[in-house]
Amino acid sequence: MKFGIVVSEGPYTHQASDTAYHFVKAALAAGHEVPRVFFYHDGVNVGTRLSIPPQDERNIQKNWTALGQEHGIDLVICIAAAQRRGLLDENEASRQGKDANNIAEGFRISGLGQLIEMGIQTDRLMTFGD
């Protein structure tokens, strides 16, 4: 079965991105497919490479990057939500005249259409938020 995943809260403040991560791992372990995870609302903040959690804590961004790369998951950050919250890739930073970008490896920025498309193309859409 194909699962589409929505993460709609930011890391550390809310448990949503952790629960989503464990769900995706369990789904893959059970032989299901997770073609895409869509990060919306404050969930876009999962995709910054600039977070530095304490050494003895999980690194939410790195966990997602690793899982995404290992299983070929499309980690999509919503562009509209990302622009509000200061999450940029190289293209967006240059297009908007900003002096830096902060997107982490394995994530990409794209439009809300990717969320709808995920709903159409997967068998189950799971939302993790608050």
């Binding site: 809300l112 709808i116 159409i120």
Partner: peptide
């Protein structure tokens, strides 16, 4: 905002 974008998908 999702509803507005989603409207283009004819669902």
């Amino acid at each position: 905002e999702v509803v507005l974008i989603g409207a283009a998908f004819d669902q």
